[in-house]
Simulated assay, not measured.
Amino acid sequence: MEQLQWLGVIRHGQSTGNVIAQDAETGGLEAIDIPERDADVPLSPTGREQAEAVGSWLSGLSPGERPQVAIVSPYLRTRQTAELALAGTGIPAVVDERLRDRELGVLDLLTGRGVEARLPEEYARRARHGKFYYRPPGGESWVDVLLRLRALLRELRQDHPGGRVLLFGHEATVLLVRYLAESLSEAELMEVAHATTVANCSISTWRRGDDVLRPELFNSVAHLHQEGAPPTRQEDVNAEPV
C-alpha cells in the first residue's frame, strides 16, 4: 500500500480546561473543577492566538508543501483550533471521531493527588500495568486509542495515496502518532512521554523517504515565538528536530 507523502499532527491550543487543570495540580487539589463536559471545553484567549500562529505557519508554506486535507477531532477546542488555523488557506477539513481525546472514565476530573487519595486501588493498578496498557473503568488505555488511530491512518493511506495530511488532535494523539509513524516499542514511547510535555499548538511532522515516513519535527513551537505570537511557558517547550 502506498504511504502518505507527508503527515503532520497539531495539538489543540491552550483550552480553559488546561488552565484550570494546571492550577489544580500545582495547587495540590484533588479535583479539577471544569464546568463543561470534556468534548465542550473551549480554547482560552491564549489558545486562540496560538491557533492563529499555526495559521501563519501554514500560510507561509509553498502551495506544493501545504497539506491537502485536515482531519480534526470532534472536541470543541480542537475544532476551534482547526478553524482558526485553516482560515484563508483553502485546506478542507473533515471531523473524525477517532481523533477524540483519550477517555479517562472514573479518573476524569481528578488530579494525580486525587486519584491516589480517592481511588487508591486504581492508583495501584495503574502503577502495576503502566500507562500503555492501563484502562481505567469506563475509560481507555493508550492501546485502545492506538486501535482507532491505526484504523484512521489506514484509511488515510487508501484515500490519499502519496498525499499530505494534517491532523488536529490532543496530547495523546501526538505521542501515539509518533509511536505508529516511527514503529516505536512501548519502552521507546514511554521514554519519549516521560521526557516530553506536548505543547499546545505544537507541530510534529513526518515526510516519506525510502518508502517510509521519516520524522522532521517533533513538538515544534518555533512558530509560537515569532513576533506577535503568544508566549509559551518554558516547561512546555521540548521542540526538537528528529
Score class of each variant (00 low, 15 high):
residue 102 R to V: 12
residue 25 E to W: 11
residue 104 L to A: 06
residue 1 M to G: 14
residue 178 R to M: 01
residue 79 R to P: 05
residue 201 C to A: 15
residue 212 V to S: 04
residue 40 D to M: 10
residue 57 W to P: 02
residue 58 L to M: 05
residue 202 S to T: 04
residue 23 D to E: 14
residue 233 R to H: 08
residue 43 L to I: 02
residue 55 G to P: 07
residue 190 M to I: 08
residue 87 A to F: 09
residue 12 H to S: 13
residue 181 A to W: 05
residue 228 G to Q: 01
residue 26 T to W: 00
residue 231 P to Y: 06
residue 90 G to K: 07
residue 110 L to M: 14
residue 213 L to A: 09
residue 155 E to T: 13
residue 149 L to M: 11
residue 98 R to H: 03
residue 56 S to V: 15
residue 222 A to E: 12
residue 95 V to H: 02
residue 43 L to D: 01
residue 150 R to M: 08
residue 144 D to A: 13
residue 201 C to D: 07
residue 31 A to I: 02
residue 99 L to M: 14
residue 219 N to A: 14
residue 242 V to L: 15
residue 109 L to M: 06
residue 69 V to D: 03
residue 189 L to Q: 12
residue 63 P to F: 03
residue 188 E to T: 03
residue 151 A to T: 15
residue 190 M to Q: 12
residue 68 Q to H: 11
residue 68 Q to W: 08
residue 139 G to F: 11
residue 223 H to C: 11
residue 102 R to D: 00
residue 232 T to F: 00
residue 66 R to S: 10
residue 151 A to H: 08
residue 152 L to H: 01
residue 199 A to R: 05
residue 67 P to V: 09
residue 172 A to G: 03
residue 151 A to I: 06
residue 97 E to R: 12
residue 196 T to W: 03
residue 7 L to K: 10
residue 66 R to G: 04
residue 49 E to C: 04
residue 59 S to N: 12
residue 138 G to T: 10
residue 234 Q to C: 00
residue 111 T to M: 09
residue 55 G to C: 08
residue 84 L to Y: 04
residue 202 S to Y: 03
residue 14 Q to V: 10
residue 143 V to I: 09
residue 77 R to C: 01
residue 98 R to I: 05
residue 50 Q to V: 01
residue 99 L to E: 07
residue 179 Y to L: 13
residue 79 R to C: 14
residue 115 V to I: 15
residue 111 T to D: 06
residue 156 L to K: 06
residue 67 P to N: 05
residue 38 D to P: 03
residue 229 A to H: 10
residue 103 E to H: 13
residue 202 S to V: 03
residue 33 D to Y: 02
residue 74 P to Q: 06
residue 70 A to H: 11
residue 173 T to E: 10
residue 70 A to L: 10
residue 105 G to I: 07
residue 124 A to H: 10
residue 237 V to C: 13
residue 21 A to C: 06
residue 226 Q to C: 05
residue 53 A to K: 07
residue 207 R to C: 02
residue 31 A to S: 04
residue 13 G to W: 05
residue 26 T to S: 14
residue 228 G to H: 01
residue 144 D to T: 14
residue 222 A to S: 10
residue 190 M to E: 14
residue 15 S to H: 08
residue 78 T to K: 05
residue 166 L to M: 12
residue 208 R to A: 15
residue 189 L to P: 09
residue 94 V to Y: 01
residue 124 A to F: 04
residue 178 R to L: 01
residue 99 L to S: 09
residue 164 R to N: 04
residue 99 L to Q: 09
residue 238 N to P: 00
residue 103 E to Y: 02
residue 82 A to W: 00
residue 121 E to P: 00
residue 162 G to Q: 08
residue 104 L to G: 00
residue 168 F to W: 03
residue 144 D to N: 15
residue 210 D to A: 15
residue 141 S to W: 11
residue 205 T to W: 09
residue 74 P to A: 07
residue 58 L to G: 00
residue 72 V to M: 13
